[in-house]
Amino acid sequence: MAKLNYNEISENYQNIAPIECGMYLSSCLADEDRTRLRSDWETIGGCNTISWWKWCYENIRVVY
């Protein structure tokens, strides 16, 4: 799961930052990876189970 450094984010934006992060991370994926991520999300119930942004935020790994 991505971990935001809230020290770098204004208090006014700390609630929306994880949403934007999840959406940004999903837009950085290759088409086939995003398709697989969406398929996995739909398999577990899609938006009835977890919002798309949260699924992305919790399941995309960023490795350095």
Rank of each mutant, 00 (worst) to 15 (best):
C28T: 10
G45K: 03
E32T: 15
W53T: 04
C28K: 10
W55D: 03
Y6G: 07
Y13Q: 13
V62E: 04
D31R: 09
L4C: 02
R36P: 12
D40P: 07
N5M: 08
Q14R: 12
Y6N: 13
G46T: 07
Q14Y: 13
A2D: 01
I9V: 12
I9E: 06
L37E: 09
I50F: 08
Q14S: 11
W52H: 03
Q14G: 02
E8M: 05
L29W: 05
P18Y: 00
N15M: 14
E8R: 15
A2T: 06
N15I: 08
I16L: 13
S26M: 07
A17G: 02
Y13H: 08
N5D: 14
N15G: 02
S10Q: 12
K3M: 10
C47E: 09
I19N: 01
W52N: 01
L25H: 00
I44A: 04
L37C: 13
E20P: 00
L29V: 02
V62K: 04
N12Y: 12
Y13L: 07
L29R: 02
Y6L: 06
W52R: 01
C56G: 13
D33K: 06
E20G: 15
R61F: 04
W52K: 01
E58G: 10
D40A: 15
N7A: 04
Y57M: 04
E11V: 07
R61I: 07
E32I: 03
